[in-house]
Design a protein around this nucleic acid. Structure first.
Lengths: 145, 145
DNA sequence: CAACAGTTTAGAATTATTATAATGTAGATT
DNA sequence: AATCTACATTATAATAATTCTAAACTGTTG
């Protein structure tokens, strides 16, 4: 989406009524330089910190799913207990830091194209994504028990 | 685990008491030629179909997590609403059929090694896994509405 | 500005998972 | 073999995440 604040038009173009809740969420999610990852919980916190009025939890869910359906958010599954969304909707790879639970985007140059030699008849490939799990390198550390 | 039925010894080796519930679950999960994927729900159904006695849901969760902790099961996150477990605990890649929600293992030859050019200081790579999402190739199909 | 369809809302319902506390049991001790 | 004890199982309650519901609200169209 655009860098400026005219999300009202954007929403209308998508066939979504530009309610104040949706516009506010657009500002929080898309009015920034870099893409980022968040959980519904994160977003609810961000909203309550930045607004005097609250947005109902159901609306946050509805709106996030509406944005997802329109292709402006993407869901990422790393571990089953947390559901992340990503404002970077392109097909891209991730590093996942198992110590901090932090998810880090890769850009195109970080990982060479993946060569897939298998194919499934009647099916086309929609996406190819790599998940690299990292953790702190404690091999020299000793344990007492 | 072994192909024969002596899971009692196996469990003891792991420091897990070979209760009848655990032995039954071992038989269902590991007494087969091929590895496979399942949800807790799948497993509960399998158990109730194959046993006259029931295993409590809490026990199924406990036991699956015990097996996971010991490294005999692996959790897989594909989409946030379903948590899959895999009896194939090696690092390996998957195809995911978005039409049928089916998860298909790749073997080593299906995908060339992934070349990662980025590194994160102080962190070591624990795993690299590729997820290939496929869906039926309907590009020639026409819709009525 | 009236009417309507789409939206928001609080709270109930649902689903998946974990915690609890009483009961049961495998394996060691006698 | 009876008993003991720590670990397991169980039904149920509790929690957490998400979806549903139905009433109230609000953009948009005419």
């Amino acid at each position: 989406m655009a860098k400026n604040c005219n999300f009202i038009e954007k929403l209308r173009e998508l066939g979504l009524r530009p309610t104040k809740q949706r516009v506010k969420m657009c500002e929080l999610l898309f009015n920034r330089e870099k893409t980022f990852h968040f959980t519904i919980n994160d977003l609810v916190k961000m909203i309550s910190e930045e607004m005097n009025e609250k947005i109902s939890l159901a609306t946050v869910y509805n709106t996030v799913h509406a944005f997802e359906k329109k292709g402006y958010l993407k869901e990422i599954s790393i571990n089953s207990d947390k559901s992340y969304f990503d404002t970077n909707t392109s097909v891209h790879h991730h590093f996942y830091d198992e110590d901090t639970n932090e998810l880090i985007d890769c850009d195109e140059n970080d990982i060479d194209p993946v060569n897939i030699k298998k194919s499934i008849t009647g099916k086309k490939i929609n996406s190819v994504e790599v998940l690299v799990k990292v953790a702190s390198d404690n091999q020299n550390q000793k344990k007492f028990n």
